[in-house]
Design a binder for these strands. Structure first.
Length: 255
DNA sequence: TTCCAGGCGTATC
DNA sequence: GATACGCATGGA
């Protein structure tokens, strides 16, 4: 069992705030998390996060949770605190311990293709079913590319099944290099990937924290609270995540 | 029954 | 480039 000290970090908000779906909640503060072939049971008590993983995977999971990286969360929090928009301060007060998870880009692509015009419990269900088929993890691009839509009918993913296969075909043709970053245009060249899903992959997969996905919730927030438009910064993705989690909380729709 | 959900492709102007 | 519409599914 590894443990790390954290400062102004909330594991439960980070895991459950709608940016990530490959987890099971064991209790309020304990989660079994999967990413890129690794799994880890993690728990937070106060300012200590416990990671039940091999010691040689400690750095992997710290990086996954964006702990001790160069991401400047203090700057995003100060921006919210000083904003003339009260809802930014409220959102940061409510869930300012959120970190932007550094997900596997391919996994993020699959999850957010599934997310389109869908709700979070169903997304999680479909992602979970897909993982069950492949030993607890999401299929590789090659595994997905050779499937037909009828092979995926058991997911009940609807029209999104075709997009998953398209994504597999696209990703499978990419050169195998670590750390390569795709841009928005490349992502949107995949049939079934539009601006929102592309921004999610940029933010959650490639940690481009200036990308801020505009889903129906964020569009409503902008329409209601930001008549002059969303105040864009180089860390809009972080602010967007606070807002997304907060607005769903106060509208108390358990979705 | 209708509405909604971390949207997108297509048709049309 | 903007806007309208259909799309699979299941819970509210």
């Amino acid at each position: 069992m590894e443990h790390i000290k954290v400062n102004n970090f909330s594991l439960s908000d980070t895991i459950t705030c709608g940016q990530f779906f490959l987890y099971t909640e064991i209790d309020d503060e304990t989660f079994l998390v999967k990413s890129a072939g690794n799994s880890c049971e993690m728990r937070q008590k106060g300012d200590i996060v416990f990671l039940d993983c091999p010691s040689n995977k400690l750095d992997f999971w710290k990086n996954f949770l964006d702990i001790d990286t160069d991401t400047d969360y203090d700057r995003a929090l100060q921006f919210c605190a000083k904003s003339k928009h009260k809802i930014l301060k409220q959102a940061a007060d409510f869930c300012g311990g959120i970190h932007i998870i550094r997900q596997d880009p391919w996994n993020a692509l699959l999850c957010f293709i599934i997310s389109q015009n869908n709700n979070i419990p169903r997304i999680k269900g479909i992602v979970g079913k897909l993982c069950e088929t492949y030993g607890g993890f999401l299929p590789s691009p090659e595994q997905l590319a050779e499937l037909s839509e009828s092979d995926l009918a058991y997911l009940h993913a609807g029209y999104r099944a075709r997009y998953l296969i398209e994504a597999g075909k696209f990703w499978g043709t990419l050169p195998r290099e670590n750390g390569q970053t795709l841009n928005r245009e490349q992502l949107m060249s995949i049939c079934g990937v539009g601006p929102k899903v592309a921004d999610c992959v940029l933010l959650y997969g490639f940690h481009k924290i200036d990308a801020y996905p505009k889903d129906v919730w964020i569009k409503r927030v902008i329409a209601e609270y930001f008549p002059d438009g969303f105040p864009e910064t180089e860390f809009s993705g972080i602010v967007q995540q606070y807002l997304f989690h907060y607005i769903r909380h106060i509208t108390r729709k358990k979705l």
